[in-house]
Design a protein around this nucleic acid. Structure first.
Ligand code: FES
Ligand code: FES
Lengths: 154, 154
DNA sequence: TCCATACTTGACAATTATAGTAAGGTATGT
DNA sequence: ACATACCTTACTATAATTGTCAAGTATGGA
């Protein structure tokens, strides 16, 4: 029951972007340095985030990414879903899945369905604004995490 | 954000056991046939379930497994946790993890912590009794699922 | 114009976790 | 004794994920 690091990175990167933006575009290079996320990997994430219309991009020198909306209109759940395809605990809940056309017979199906709803509900109840507010109330140096933390292994 | 098939299988197997037991021990062979779960795999699961004191075993011919407690005293969350080690969305929440000793600096930590609590809370709110009641209210043939359903792939 | 910056995009390798298989052992009722 | 059925460990194959590489495009400024 693990969240992908993609999702963890994406949320952290979004908090970073939000914190250091101040209206101007923020380059991935900066975010990469502060949050210690590989630049190439960040590029993949922001490719998705852009498609998901959570950020917009500015090309050329001095360019970077900007939030597509206000901090308080971006839910954590959106970010996670955007980089992680689906947020369902089991495959048969995925859109377009045909492995089980008779959920009516599956006793456990409704359990996982309910679980998925709770997960989404919780993550959608938190906005980027909540996280940046939290971050500003802290001493914190560079980046919003401790170096090397939040890694899936180690 | 996927649940392991171990967990899915375990819950289904427990429902099956509960449904067909009627006081007598149920052999894994039976469960394996009805639920279409490989016998060897089931053995691994029940090895864990026994250690977790959710079932007890009876050896020898005519033996099998029996619920260690009443249906309504066994939570789905217990079953899942027992076969799946931990139920945390990120590694730093795991007991004994040392990757981050300063969660105070990590802005996103509390989000994942809250998520984990919701997940556990929800799964602990459902008991085996709820599932068997559900199952008995259905036409259903052999096993409590449709053949081939609930598989992670396909 | 030319160049440096920084986004854009696809392909791919390495690592890890999971699912599933195999095999041998132990207890026990008949 | 013998068949049944639990007990336990070890291993392999497969899939997903993480992370790297590389080549391209748009743009602002010297
Ligand atoms: S059909 Fe969805 S869990 Fe079985
Ligand atoms: S320390 Fe737990 S998520 Fe960063």
């Amino acid at each position: 029951m693990r969240l992908s690091t993609r999702a963890q990175y994406a949320v952290r990167a979004m908090v970073d972007l939000s914190l250091y933006s101040e209206g101007r575009p923020v380059s991935l290079k900066e975010i990469s340095r502060r949050e210690e996320i590989p630049l190439n990997y960040l590029e993949q994430l922001f490719f998705r985030l852009k498609k998901g219309q959570i950020v917009t991009s500015v090309r050329g020198p001095g360019g970077g990414y900007v939030l597509a909306r206000q901090e308080d209109a971006i839910k954590v759940g959106e970010i996670v879903v955007t980089v992680e395809e689906q947020l369902n605990p089991v495959a048969c809940l995925d859109e377009g899945d045909r492995s089980c056309r008779r959920e009516a017979h599956c006793v456990t199906h409704f359990v996982w369905q309910g679980l998925g709803e709770r997960i989404r509900g919780f993550l959608d109840s938190i906005t980027l604004a909540d996280l940046t507010r939290e971050a500003r109330n802290r001493p914190a140096g560079e980046g919003n995490i401790e170096k090397g933390a939040c890694k899936p292994t180690g």
